[in-house]
Amino acid sequence: MEPGGDVIVELMADHRELEALFAQIELQPIDHPRRRVLADRLTAELVRHTVAEELHLYPVVRKHVPHGAALADKELADHAGVERMLKDLEDLSVDDPQFNDTIAKLKFEVASHVREEERELFPKLAAALPPEKLDELGYLVRRARETAPTRPHPSLPNITPANRMLLPGAGLVDRVRDLLRTTTG
C-alpha cells in the first residue's frame, strides 16, 4: 500500500487488501500448500491492522466520537474473536477440514467487522475530527503497522496503556521468528 493518507483512507486500503487475500485463498485448490502461505500472510496483515487500530484508532474513538466507548468496545470484542480464530488457524494444515471452515468463518467475521467500521464508525470519526487529526492518525497507524506483531497473541491486552508496552516486543519476536522461518525453510 502507498504511504500517506488519513486514517480512514489507510484503514479502508487495509480492508481492500484483506478482501483480496481472502479471494486469493479461495482461488487455490482446497488442499494446495499455497493456501497455507496465503493464510499466513492474511494472518500477519490482519494482526498488524488490528494492532494499529487498537493502539491509535479506538482510543481516539472513545474520546471524540459520540458513544465512542460502546463503539470501541464492540470493535475490540470483534478483534478478540478474530484473533482467537487466527490462533486456531495457525496450527491447522491445509489438508485439515477445519482449515477451510476456519477460513470461511474468519472471512465472514472480518467482512462483518469491515462493514460496521466503514458504514458506522468511519463516518462518525470523520464528523468528529478535523482533517489534520485524521492525517495524524493515518501516520500513527502506518507507523504502528511497521512494528506490530505478525502473529496472533490472544493473551496480550488489547487496550492501552498495557498494549503500548507489550505489543512492540511481541512484534519484534514475531519478525525474528518470521525471518528464521523464511531462511530455514
Rank of each mutant, 00 (worst) to 15 (best):
M1G: 13
E2L: 14
G5K: 06
D6C: 02
V7L: 03
V7K: 07
V7Y: 00
E10C: 04
E10N: 08
A20Q: 08
A20C: 03
F22G: 13
F22W: 11
E26I: 02
P29G: 01
I30H: 15
D31Y: 11
L38D: 00
R41E: 13
A44H: 01
A44M: 05
H49N: 07
H49P: 05
A52L: 03
L55S: 05
Y58E: 05
V60F: 04
V60Q: 07
K63P: 07
V65P: 09
H67G: 12
K74C: 10
A77P: 04
H79V: 02
A80S: 09
M85C: 15
M85N: 15
L86W: 01
L89E: 05
E90M: 07
E90R: 11
E90I: 01
D91M: 12
D91C: 11
V94L: 03
V94F: 05
D95A: 13
D96F: 05
P97E: 13
F99L: 07
I103F: 11
A104R: 15
A104T: 15
L106I: 12
E109M: 14
E109Y: 10
H113T: 04
E118S: 06
E120G: 02
F122D: 00
A127C: 09
A127R: 11
A128M: 10
P131K: 13
D135L: 10
L137T: 07
Y139K: 14
L140M: 07
V141F: 10
R142D: 12
T150Q: 10
R151G: 03
L156S: 06
P161N: 07
A162G: 08
A162H: 12
M165S: 12
L166P: 03
L166E: 04
P168S: 07
A170G: 04
G171C: 04
G171N: 09
L172W: 12
V176E: 05
D178K: 13
L179G: 10
L180N: 09
G185P: 00
G185Y: 02
